[in-house]
Amino acid sequence: MLHIDVGLQMRDFTFAASTEVPSGVTVVVGPSGAGKSTLLRIIAGLLRPDSGSIVLDGRVLSDHRTFVPPYQRDIGLVFQEYALFPHLSVGRNVAYGLRARNVPARERGARVQAALDRLEVGSLANEHVGELSGGQRQRVALARALVIEPKALLLDEPLSALDPQTRGRVRSELASILSDIHIPTLLVTHDEADRAAFPQRVLLIEHGRLISGAQHG
């Protein structure tokens, strides 16, 4: 369970979010500039809130006394443009988080291959990041975030970088992959179509304020 109750004074508005994110996918919908990326950055530890707290599975990540830096939070983040390291191969990209955790080489190799296989891009391990298609990049980014077995997963507009034709197909594939993992997962988007694909839980965000939306099933 991910508890969020934070406030941050920004240039254009006051950001405020207070909610609890259970295991499974929660979609956060809002227009451009509403503060969706800000929400994810605060949870990941890339931005420090002015007030409030973030608690994940009982561990305090941020409050008035503590601030756990992003590299110690164990939270996976899939960036909007995927942020794959251009100087590393696909395999090395995915292995990056395991290296950070000092996982030995052999185990690293096995886990990387398994993660790539799970996302059906197993053959791309030695490819250059620059040679991949949009859909392939997205899967590699997802594999990279998932292979470290994070306690929570954040996805920043995972489909907006794809062309409209690919988007539909990838959307359903993403839904099926994410249904398999059982950690709090926040998917942020401005596209209403994404809402339908992940009906479990939807939140709205507008002018920096997170509002609980309709809850389905």
Binding site: G45, Y71, G76, F79, A100, R101
Partner: peptide, 9 residues
């Protein structure tokens, strides 16, 4: 930022 979220100090 990506490097940080992946656990590199």
């Amino acid at each position: 930022s990506a490097s940080a979220t992946l656990g590199m100090g």
